[in-house]
């Protein structure tokens, strides 16, 4: 089972990175992202890069965005390119295919983020000499865990959406709609909340213990991941993948 998962990850990455004539991503695309977030931005921001609150924002959307593209391409896209059924006609258990595809997308996104984060720290230290600096360990750890959990969330939603999409593009569009809703509805709601409620909320927020908030957030994400992965396991069956 584990070997089979690795085989799928190997295949997804090979297709993603090393295939010539891949319009979408490939190594070049990855290099651009890493250079931007690992060298250019830290260089622009100086030593602040390691402490800016902006950090969390950047690192929260990056893996989400990368996972999304990859997971829809690897399921809906594979159906669209007519390679999925042949894969399903092989001995591979469905779970191995599922975990392989989720794993390929999640670790791809997470890996790029990790490399950019570390490279950013190196850049800052080299470009702006002084006492060695690194991210706040708690923030760093939180970013790593959160982005991993968020990627799994997106990947499993991506799997479920792909199961109902004829093409990768269709799946990607559906996912984008999901995101708009998840991201913007809370913002819109916040906009129209009466002032006194807002003030009350932010006062409450100020008094909250950061560690407690992070832990709670993690537990919620973890629960959501577990539920979604279980739903994926139930739905990711040969007949569902072949018929639409």
């Amino acid at each position: 089972m584990f070997t089979d998962i690795l085989t799928i990850i190997y295949k997804e990455w090979k297709e993603m990175f090393f295939a010539r004539s891949t319009a979408r991503s490939g190594l070049l695309g990855v290099a651009v992202i890493v250079a931007l977030l690992g060298i250019f931005m830290p260089f622009q921001n100086g030593r602040d890069w390691l402490t800016t609150p902006l950090l969390i924002l950047i690192w929260s959307w990056l893996p989400v965005f990368l996972t999304l593209g990859m997971v829809t391409d690897s399921i809906a896209g594979e159906r669209e390119r007519h390679t999925l059924e042949t894969l399903l006609a092989s001995r591979l258990p469905e779970q191995a295919i599922l975990f392989g595809k989720i794993g390929a997308a999640v670790f791809y996104a997470w890996g790029i983020m990790l490399v950019s984060l570390l490279l950013g720290a190196v850049t800052v230290n080299l470009a702006f000499p002084g006492s060695p600096a690194f991210y706040d360990p708690l923030v760093f750890a939180a970013v790593l865990v959160f982005s991993l959990l968020a990627s799994v969330l997106i990947a499993s939603i991506g799997v479920l959406v792909s199961l109902h999409s004829k093409t990768a593009r269709q799946a990607y569009q559906k996912m984008s709609v999901v995101f708009l809703v998840v991201w913007f509805i809370p913002m819109l709601v916040a906009q129209f909340l009466p002032e006194e409620i807002k003030a009350g909320l932010s006062a409450r927020l100020m008094t909250l213990d950061l560690n407690a908030v992070l832990t709670l957030g993690m537990l919620i994400l973890l629960a959501a991941d577990t539920v979604l992965v279980l739903v994926c396991l139930k739905r990711f069956q040969r007949p569902n993948l072949i018929l639409l």
Partner: peptide, 26 residues
């Protein structure tokens, strides 16, 4: 199985296509 569609990964080389399935067959 050679189904309706050849099921080859067009972005991979011929050799890599076979290598992938050889791995799948352990």
């Amino acid at each position: 199985a050679l189904l309706e569609h050849s099921g080859l990964y067009e972005r991979l080389s011929a050799e890599d296509n076979l290598d992938l399935y050889a791995r799948i067959w352990r």
